[in-house]
């Protein structure tokens, strides 16, 4: 990997209608939210690049829960910028509880 990458960890809460969406769906929802937020994205390598994200553990389908997500960016952004821009793009039922680092 030649490109520089910058990591921000956050805790995200899944509630209301969003509890019916799987872990794979959650990745998709966050990827599209990040794209809409026009943040400097960092992509996975390979034939079909995706926005890179990693999860600490998978949440169960059908119940509320919190989990740690690591966001990867190609430029250094402040946690405040992430929180402000992403918040507007998250569907009802997904909330950023806190930014860890």
């Amino acid at each position: 990997m030649n490109e520089q990458r910058f990591l921000i960890k956050a805790v995200i809460k899944k509630s209301d209608e969003m509890i019916y969406f799987s872990q794979i769906d959650l990745g998709l929802v966050l990827e599209r939210a990040l794209r809409r937020a026009e943040l400097p994205l960092y992509f996975t390598q390979g034939f079909r690049p995706r926005v890179k994200l990693s999860f600490s553990r998978a949440l169960k389908l059908g119940v509320e829960g919190e989990e740690e997500v690591t966001f990867y960016f190609s430029k250094n952004i402040t946690p405040q910028e992430l929180q402000e821009k992403l918040k507007k793009q998250l569907p009802h039922g997904l909330t950023i509880l806190k930014i860890i680092e």
Binding site: E17, M18, Y20, D25, R32, G62, P91, H92, G93
Partner: peptide, 17 residues
């Protein structure tokens, strides 16, 4: 309780936009 069904997102109607 939509989790009783397969693919609950079919019935929820909370798509973006």
């Amino acid at each position: 309780d939509f989790k009783l069904f397969q693919h609950p997102q079919r019935y929820i109607g909370n798509e973006w936009n």
